[in-house]
């Protein structure tokens, strides 16, 4: 997959939809192309996080490691982003990401990302909105879980 195709793909992601072509190209260029075989881990829960992954092909599952065992959270397909929380805040990975198939991904480095955000103010708004939507989604899910517990 070429740089220009990656740019097209990034454009489809809600985070980057507003970003102009040049900036997106810069982001894509500054990011690393990585590939994983089935079973290989993109990152592990508890590690320090310094990058997010845009999945270009294949499927990645995110897993929560608990003392009692692993709980699968979800499967992430093409056009999804994993590990993006760490782009905005410090902290450890809250889950493990593992390749289920052969995976091609774009590894976006935290420093590059913050630099791009720094240079394009309206993107900050966009990212905040996307995060807020995800938070509402998560809160909904949590409510549902709690509601189930009461039943």
């Amino acid at each position: 997959m070429l740089l220009c195709e990656e740019v097209q793909l990034l454009k489809k992601l809600p985070y980057f939809a507003d970003l102009d072509g040049c900036k997106l190209k810069l982001l894509a260029f500054a990011s690393e192309r990585v590939s994983y075989e089935p079973g290989q881990k993109l990152f592990k829960q508890g590690d320090g996080g310094d990058s997010a992954y845009v999945i270009l092909s294949g499927t990645v599952e995110t897993v929560l490691e608990t003392p009692t065992g692993q709980t699968k959270i979800r499967e992430n397909g093409v056009n999804s982003v994993v590990g993006e929380i760490c782009l905005l805040c410090e902290g450890e990975r809250t889950n493990t990401a593992k390749a289920l198939t052969h995976v091609e991904a774009l590894k976006i480095n935290k420093d590059c990302f913050s630099r791009i955000i720094h240079d394009s103010p309206n993107m900050t708004m966009r990212v905040t909105r996307t995060l807020a939507e995800r938070l509402r989604h998560t809160a909904d899910e949590l409510d549902t879980v709690k509601a189930h517990q009461f039943v």
């Binding site: 740089l3 040049c22 810069l26 420093d111």
Partner: peptide, 19 residues
């Protein structure tokens, strides 16, 4: 052409030049 498109306008100390 590609490089100019990507890098033009970036300040000289921009970390992307490390790429």
């Amino acid at each position: 052409g590609n490089m100019v498109e990507i890098f033009s306008g970036l300040p000289p100390d921009h970390p992307f030049f490390n790429q």
